[in-house]
Write a protein that binds this DNA or RNA. Structure first.
Lengths: 161, 161
DNA sequence: TGCGGCTGTTTAACATGTTAATTATCAACC
DNA sequence: GGTTGATAATTAACATGTTAAACAGCCGCA
């Protein structure tokens, strides 16, 4: 509200933030800047971003049905199905049908994937440290807090819309 | 470094941040939370996210070659080519070859697109206000600053890597 | 037990992102 | 002025995201 000078007049006479000042764009650009280094590391190990997210999530749980996996790694179920299929082809995950509910497909990591994880994790953490150093620990922490705030408030956790 | 308790042991005995504490994931989730409302507004006007980014960027410049347009809206050139083609089919943009350099394709908004913009912009700004209220003006400003910081530092603006 | 609705997953169809190769034009140099 | 290398844009091929429909198994209930 204060910086009226950074706004532009539309043909209809109303104002609108300039394109540069768009929260989705700012989030997208920041994410791409952060991902660049991670992607380089992942590519050296033949993984893409989604595959690594899945492996990382599976590392924390032993086994999990594909629906909950998709939710945790923030990938839609059809994409998760496809990616898991690729990982299975490369012997990085097992898929077993639940005995109690034949609809459920339980996914788990193979020993090969665990070895891959152990080789990749240190490099990933090193890249994370590089990023933390570049940004500064305090700002990094503040950024995490703000992102969590935004996500929770807008997803209606609690009252609100 | 302080919260060792939030880390997990890998099979190799090293530690790694839990999946939830991943900056790319946090950025992705926040962006999706923010975009949800905007997408609803855009869909009502038959536009997707990329089309709106392009229209919004064109609104600020009169005309621009497709390469620079792609750079500004953070869409790769092949995608920009495709999206511009769709917009052209719907009479929302003009494309003219530069007289001085026949390789260049200049893109500009049609009057129809300007009308569409003027109808959409207020709703878009209303949604932006809703988000700002939910987050709080101070935190919103801090978030912008941190995102800019991250982007600049990691993209090597200045010294650094 | 068999029908209807519900749920977890997959398939299908299409949109968008991404990389590499291709085309067309320009610009410099001999 | 013709060749070579660089540049703007497109095309092609494939990966991933997204939505809707299909499929299969579960469950409750008459």
């Amino acid at each position: 509200m204060a910086d009226e000078s950074s706004r532009r007049l539309t043909a209809a006479g109303r104002t609108m933030r300039p394109f540069e000042q768009s929260l989705p764009m700012a989030l997208l650009r920041a994410r791409e800047a952060v991902m660049r280094g991670f992607r380089r590391v992942l590519r050296e190990h033949g993984l893409n971003e989604q595959e690594w997210r899945i492996i990382r999530a599976l590392k924390e749980v032993d086994r999990i049905d594909i629906g909950e996996l998709a939710e945790r790694v923030f990938i839609l179920k059809p994409s998760a199905t496809r990616t898991v299929k690729n990982l299975q082809r490369r012997n990085l995950v097992n898929r077993d049908k639940s005995a109690s509910d034949q609809r459920r497909a339980y996914i788990s990591l193979t020993p090969e994937a665990r070895e891959l994880f152990d080789r990749l994790a240190p490099k990933n953490e090193a890249e994370y440290s590089r990023i933390t150093e570049a940004i500064g620990g305090g700002d990094m922490k503040r950024l995490y807090e703000l992102l969590r705030l935004v996500t929770e408030r807008l997803n209606g956790n609690g009252r609100g819309c």
